[in-house]
Amino acid sequence: MGDQEITFIIECEVKADLASEFDALVPLLESVANDDPGTVEYRWYRGPTPTSMCLYERYRDSEATLAHIEAFGHEPTKRYLDLIELTSVIMIGPASEQLTAQLAPFFEGSVPGVTAVWYRT
């Protein structure tokens, strides 16, 4: 792993009545993210139940992560966020002040129902 890489492990539950729509959206999300030059890896994994999912994503550095967040703030991400309930967010790496400010609601505990942990190097 690069010493500036930012890694996320994000767990969520897909809303049961929207599972087929979510499954159809995942390839688009993966394609768009993996075409981004700052993305090292972006992949969805199915959990122990049909509705539990885990997103594993790695970015070159904080700047690339912020670019991803900005790019994904558009329609596909808004739609995917409508299809899921976040349960946990783990961020690993030397996040910049700008990145931690952007994600502060998660790590300060102000996003209801989401547990968030940041592991620093």
Rank of each mutant, 00 (worst) to 15 (best):
M1Q: 13
M1R: 08
I6V: 12
I6C: 02
F8K: 09
E11M: 04
E11V: 07
E11A: 10
E11L: 05
E11R: 15
C12K: 04
V14T: 02
D17R: 05
L18M: 12
A19E: 14
A19M: 13
E21F: 02
F22V: 03
F22A: 08
D23L: 06
L25G: 03
L25F: 03
P27G: 04
L28S: 06
L29N: 01
E30T: 02
E30N: 04
S31D: 07
D36I: 00
W44D: 10
Y45C: 12
R46A: 14
P48H: 13
T49D: 10
P50M: 06
T51L: 11
T51S: 14
T51R: 08
S52H: 12
S52K: 14
M53S: 04
C54M: 15
C54Y: 04
Y56S: 08
E57R: 07
D61Y: 10
E63P: 01
L66E: 12
A67F: 05
H68C: 06
I69T: 05
F72N: 15
F72H: 12
G73D: 13
P76A: 02
T77E: 11
K78P: 00
Y80I: 14
L81E: 11
D82L: 04
I84D: 07
E85P: 00
E85T: 14
L86I: 06
T87I: 10
T87G: 05
V89K: 00
I90V: 11
I92P: 01
G93K: 03
S96F: 05
Q98C: 07
L103D: 01
F107E: 10
V111F: 02
V114M: 01
T115F: 06
A116E: 07
T121E: 14
T121F: 13
